[in-house]
Design a protein around this nucleic acid. Structure first.
Lengths: 208, 208
DNA sequence: ATTATCTATAGATCTATAGATAATGC
DNA sequence: ATTATCTATAGATCTATAGATAATGC
């Protein structure tokens, strides 16, 4: 098992660097040379780890990333179970603990550069890892009556999209910290923008 | 003035194609050959219109696009003046009338490929064209008391970001039409997700 | 023997430049 | 003369392949 450990380590290091660079500047902007330089090795050496070249490296990086997020998101949803606001806070905290995802920037341009099978495969994985668990959480909250009925796909997409958005914009000097912005976004989603009336102790069961 | 008209026409055609391709797949994914092929001309001919090459072409395309959106967004805000929900609907309608912006996908990877001056210039223009008018509208709505106090930058960013998001995702077969999704997003922002109590005829002026 | 790297290089693009050509309108 | 295109090509990358080399652990 020593050998295998060894392999994992150096290959994981390649994936780490690939993830940083690809997520930051996109598939097309990053060359194998960029990745090799960052690792302090030669470009051709990457083919030892990924004989399929750039596309295989990208796929491996993306799949590892989605697996990690699937795990993190599901743990977050479990931790806040029964209370949507708590769940969303846990998910936001998970994201802020991670390298910025730039999930949508990736879905934008990067997927288009892959061959159709790989593209399909990654889109499916992204859906299962990030989208579906969140959508299920929104559906459950609707079943509990915690939130009003609304297209759960739209809700999951909006939440993910907004969380992802926090990772762009280079964090200007004047901007509040990410933690605060995430909390405000959750409040925006749940409470909305219109001023609230004083909350009654018990919600009336009225409906037109 | 005939000549100038002539020049505008063929150059505008180049910009039209450049906008479609660049916005769809990103700066790095699109080559000058792609653009020339789409136009039915040779790659070298593009240098007649843009001697500065690819980067100059991208800048001209982006600036034209932002000028157009500045105009459209300000007209939309004016049309719905005094009522934030009406304003947001008008802006959403404006966006749906336009080629998908993929504004954020662009800010993600594309800007990084430009030289620092161009990058700065474009970021500034994007801010003035799209962000600032919307932020001002949110501030005005807060002053009117139409919405609760909240960081207006975050609101403007979230709204733009969500509108932009509608342009990704390839519009699956099962998904509701963009028009409906935009309306739902506006309702999400303004009304929030929590179930509303029956609305009183007059809002109480209470505050802890 | 296996792991992880290297050098060298072929082949494919891509951007950009130089200079020629055809059509149009004075 | 101006406008808009073309051909040809230099120079710079980039991906990927072939085969050599050094270190480690049996």
């Amino acid at each position: 098992m020593y050998m295998e450990q060894e392999v994992r380590d150096s290959t994981q290091r390649v994936l780490d660097v690939a993830e940083t660079l690809f997520m930051d500047r996109g598939y097309n902007a990053i060359t194998l040379r960029d990745i090799a330089d960052e690792l302090g090795i030669k470009q051709a050496s990457l083919y030892y780890h990924f004989p399929g070249g750039k596309e295989q490296l990208f796929m491996a990086m993306a799949e590892r990333m989605f697996d990690r997020h699937r795990q993190g998101i599901m743990a977050a949803l479990e931790a806040g179970k029964g209370d949507l606001r708590a769940q969303l806070r846990e998910v936001a905290e998970w994201f802020s603990s991670q390298r910025p995802v730039k999930f949508m920037g990736m879905m934008h341009a990067d997927l288009a550069a892959l061959n159709p099978e790989h593209k399909e495969q990654l889109a499916r994985k992204a859906h299962a890892a990030m989208f579906r668990p969140l959508r299920d959480a929104f559906v459950a909250a609707q079943v509990r009556g915690e939130i009003r009925p609304m297209h759960p796909d739209l809700l999951a997409g909006s939440f993910l999209w907004l969380m992802d958005g926090l990772n762009y914009g280079e964090t200007r000097s004047g901007a509040p910290p990410r933690q605060v912005m995430a909390e405000e976004l959750i409040s925006l989603l749940l409470d909305g923008l219109l001023p609230r009336q004083a909350e009654p102790a018990v919600a009336p069961a009225t409906r037109g």
